[in-house]
């Protein structure tokens, strides 16, 4: 039996994305930030935690590209190392919430009896502002990178589930799903081979945006001092530490803020590009 029609993917998708200058720039930014985070011990010019009180609050210059903080630590190195935590949190939250959200979305969208309960739970979870729910969950679970990932995954799963459910509702009614049913294909096979394969496009787009939102939320939690352990450098904790020195050493908040903004902007550009490439109808509108 013929498989369901597939959307643009593989080499075709790469070609479509490569045609958009903004997407190429977005991907390049992500590549540079990702590579710097992975290769942090090699790329960073100094130990991010090395104290050098004699050179505290040194402005940006050749010795310290982004300057130093109140303990004389090299901000450039700290921004690179902080990227490891922030990007890991964003990536893991995007992955976990996509897997869980797809499961609940498929269940709600495909099985009519499960639709109402899944939808009501999704509605209820979305009534909590993301930071507030994350704060409460981290308060209950304790502040650590893993718990921030768990908390933010719980926060973003309903958002993915809503997208997955809406897409499944459309696919469920299509002729090839009906044909598969008539041929006696098992429900789970239909879900995996026919439904899931055809809702991948909106899910990839949603995962990209979830990555971006999770990074912003993690930064917010760290800024509030209720996220990861304050001794772990993240872009949010760096801004929190620098807020006392905004007047005298503005560079302490400037560079981590630029890093978050660049990363989130790049993800949004790539997300938009993916949506344009994968769903040309929607791209005309937004």
């Amino acid at each position: 039996m013929a498989n369901a029609p597939a959307h643009a993917g593989g080499p075709g998708l790469v070609k479509l994305l490569a045609q958009r200058q903004s997407v190429v720039i977005g991907l390049a930014i992500l590549f540079v930030l990702g590579a710097a985070a992975i290769l942090a011990p090699v790329v960073a010019p100094a130990d991010p935690n090395k104290l050098a009180i004699a050179s505290r609050l040194t402005p940006p210059g050749w010795a310290h590209l982004f300057g130093t903080d109140e303990y004389g630590r090299d901000i450039f190195s700290r921004v690179i190392f902080a990227g490891r935590v922030s990007l890991t949190v964003g990536l893991c939250v995007a992955a976990f919430s996509t897997v869980a959200g797809v499961f609940f979305g498929l269940m709600g969208g495909f099985f009519r009896r499960l639709d109402a309960p899944v939808s009501r739970v999704v509605d209820a979870m979305m009534a909590f502002p993301d930071i507030l729910l994350a704060i409460a969950l981290v308060a209950a679970l304790g502040g650590s990178v893993l718990n921030v990932i768990i908390a933010l995954s719980v926060v973003y799963t309903p958002r993915v589930a809503r997208v997955a459910r809406a897409s499944t509702l459309v696919i469920r009614e299509l002729t090839y799903v009906e044909a598969a049913r008539a041929l006696g294909v098992s429900t789970w096979r239909i879900l995996a081979n026919h439904v899931l394969r055809n809702i991948v496009s909106p899910l990839i787009v949603q995962a990209t945006f979830t990555f971006a939102y999770a990074m912003l939320a993690e930064a917010g939690l760290s800024f509030l001092g209720v996220g990861v352990d304050p001794s772990t450098p993240t872009w949010g904790t760096m801004i929190n530490e620098g807020r006392k020195y905004v007047s005298s050493a503005g560079w302490m908040i400037l560079f981590p803020g630029i890093a978050i903004t660049l990363c989130v902007l790049a993800l949004q550009i790539v997300g938009d590009g993916l949506r344009d490439a994968l769903d040309p109808n929607l791209s005309k509108e937004l």
Partner: peptide
């Protein structure tokens, strides 16, 4: 939409 509100607030 990409700027953290607390960072913009501090600036």
């Amino acid at each position: 939409a990409s700027v953290p509100s607390f960072w913009l607030g501090l600036i």
